[in-house]
Amino acid sequence: MADHQQLAKSFESIGEEYDRYRPGFPVAAAEEIVPERVDAVLDLGAGTGKFTELLVARAERVIAVEPSVAMLDVLRTKLPAVEALEGGAEGIPLPDGSMDAVTVAQAFHWFDRDAACAQIRRVLVPGGMLGLLWNHSDPACTWDRACTRVAHPAVTDDTDATTASAAEELPGFTFDHRTELAWSEPITRDAYIRRWLTVSSFLAADEATRASMVGELERILDADPETVGRDEFVLPMVTEVFIYRAGAA
């Protein structure tokens, strides 16, 4: 089993595949974190801009920070108005007190929590907002939940491994609230399988293990009555959002 650092580094070589196959986020998630237009917002661990694009209409200045050059190349092409900077959460390349809000979509679990919180707090204005969010499978969707367990065996019907890094207490922040947003998207069987191939545990696996994991996904889709024999289906999703407010310096 690959360790945490290996899994995190597995994303460095992909960009276009991630942008093409990974899901986006509902507009309501951006509205939850940035309810009114602000001067400046940072999307940290921005990837290819899946969430960044929802912030463009909500701030005068949008900055994206991401360590993967491959992902930044896609983001820059897609969102030329966004200031895209290479960097990580533990060393954000921005001045103190320069951001009204910071968002972290599908990435906070990769950060060194305390170091990242200190950096996020540093770049935020006092009282600025931090929003952490993740997409995850709908517990009511048996086939997607079963496929999720292939990639993330620790996931159960009651827990999601990635959101475990969010909590009601983060150093330097006051927890505001948590919300869940239910939505869905149509997806082809091929695109669904290819989406899983952009997930860290698939990327980090050796060829034989990856082939075995894909075979398990195929068996699940061939066995479930909602997906068997179908080339396209509707995938229900849940976006979980955690909102925090920065304390005084």
Rank of each mutant, 00 (worst) to 15 (best):
V41M: 11
E36F: 13
V34G: 11
P67D: 01
V62E: 00
E60G: 14
E60Y: 09
L42W: 10
A46L: 03
M71I: 05
V38L: 12
R22W: 13
A29V: 06
V65P: 07
R22E: 02
A59R: 07
G45P: 09
R22C: 07
T77K: 14
I14F: 00
R61Y: 13
T48A: 06
S13I: 03
Y21P: 06
G49R: 09
S13Q: 02
L42F: 15
S68K: 03
F11R: 00
I63W: 12
V27W: 14
G45E: 02
F11G: 03
A30L: 04
E32P: 07
A30V: 04
P67G: 00
P23D: 10
P23C: 12
R61D: 10
L54S: 10
E53M: 12
V65Y: 07
L72R: 09
F51I: 09
S68E: 00
T48C: 06
S13P: 00
T52P: 14
G45I: 03
V38T: 11
E32C: 15
E32D: 10
L54C: 07
A30C: 11
A28C: 10
A70M: 02
R76T: 03
L55V: 10
G15W: 05
R20G: 03
S68G: 01
F51E: 04
E31Y: 13
A64L: 05
D73Y: 04
P23K: 10
G45T: 01
I33S: 07
L55T: 06
V69H: 05
E66G: 01
T52R: 07
A28R: 09
V69Q: 09
E31M: 04
S10P: 00
E17L: 07
I63G: 04
A40H: 14
L75W: 02
A28N: 13
E32W: 12
V27T: 08
E32Y: 14
E53I: 05
D39C: 10
P26A: 06
A28E: 13
S10D: 00
E12M: 02
V34H: 13
F11D: 04
D19M: 05
P67L: 00
E66M: 00
R61A: 05
L72M: 08
E60R: 12
P35Y: 11
L44M: 09
Y18G: 02
V38P: 08
E12H: 07
A70G: 03
A57P: 13
R37D: 01
R37T: 04
A57F: 08
D73E: 06
V56M: 09
D39A: 07
D73A: 01
D73W: 00
A30I: 06
P23L: 12
L44C: 11
D43W: 08
A29M: 10
M71S: 02
P23F: 14
V65G: 03
D39E: 15
V38C: 13
P26C: 10
I63P: 10
F25N: 08
I63R: 12
P26M: 10
V27M: 12
G45R: 05
E31Q: 14
E53A: 10
V69E: 08
G49N: 12
V34D: 11
E17W: 07
V69S: 01
L75Q: 02
T48L: 03
A28T: 09
P35M: 08
P23Y: 15
L54N: 04
E12S: 07
S13K: 11
E36G: 09
G24I: 14
A59V: 13
E12W: 04
R58S: 06
E53P: 13
T77I: 02
V38G: 11
T48N: 02
I63V: 15
T48P: 02
I63M: 08
